[in-house]
């Protein structure tokens, strides 16, 4: 594992490939298999731009659940789920059709969770999955606590839903789609967007193509 992680990023951001539309999952960039929960120290080896396939358990939580988690932390209460060392996925899935584990389950916009995230990282959450920019406060906290922010493809809800093998509500069921879900994933594709050094793909990537 660590050998793979130490591999130099091959500067794929500049490489032009003639990948055909519809075969997007098979491009030539290396995919790194990651077992969850993230082992101690792994997050510090991850580098911005790396593509990962996540396997194991993540926790789905978005706006309203975050609000309650922070309220509990501020009151010194135990959280309804032990999230220390875990990965939070900003998601509000659609209800599954009968016989299926999950419907569509793509990421929601992460910045809405920015005001809660530093406290959760301090508490011990190790990874975050979402889409879009993070605030400087979140980036500092990611660096301080050696965490990682992973980007999933926004709007690819049906495709990502296929990677979800099990999903159950584990806290705040009254919140409906905003409840906390325990989600078992298989080969969930994500990209390291902000690594534990604070390197940020949402800055580095666009800067390479900006012509204004």
């Amino acid at each position: 594992m660590s050998k793979e992680l130490q591999r130099e990023n091959r500067g794929y951001l500049n490489s032009g490939s003639s990948q055909q539309c519809g075969s997007g999952m098979n491009d030539d960039q290396e995919l790194i298999q990651i077992q969850l929960p993230l082992a101690e120290g792994i997050t510090k080896e991850l580098r911005v731009g790396q593509r990962l396939l996540l396997n194991g358990v993540i926790y789905g939580a978005r706006d309203a659940a975050h609000q309650r988690l922070i309220a509990a932390l501020e009151k010194g209460e135990n959280l309804p789920v032990d999230l220390r060392g875990q990965v939070i996925y900003y998601v509000g899935p659609t209800p599954p059709r009968p016989g299926r584990p999950c419907g569509a389950a793509g990421p929601t916009t992460s910045s809405r969770m920015d005001r809660y995230t530093p406290q959760l990282l301090e508490y011990g959450v190790r990874g975050l999955i979402g889409k879009g920019r993070r605030s400087p406060e979140v980036i500092n906290a990611i660096r301080k606590y050696g965490a990682v922010y992973l980007a999933a493809t926004g709007g690819a809800g049906a495709l990502i839903g296929r990677c979800i093998k099990e999903m159950q509500v584990v806290a705040y069921p009254d919140l409906g789609p905003e409840a906390i879900y325990r989600i078992t994933v298989e080969n969930l594709p994500v990209t390291v967007a902000i690594d534990s050094r604070g390197e940020n793909l949402y800055e580095i990537g666009p800067a390479q193509y900006r012509r204004i």
């Binding site: 794929y12 951001l13 490489s15 032009g16 490939s17 990948q19 055909q20 539309c21 519809g22 075969s23 997007g24 999952m25 491009d27 030539d28 960039q29 731009g49 493809t153 709007g155 690819a156 495709l159 594709p189 990209t191 990537g205 390479q208 193509y209």
Partner: peptide, 11 residues
């Protein structure tokens, strides 16, 4: 961008 092409493929 190859990253961009990949994402368009996923979409």
């Amino acid at each position: 961008s190859s990253q961009g092409k990949r994402i368009l493929g996923e979409i």
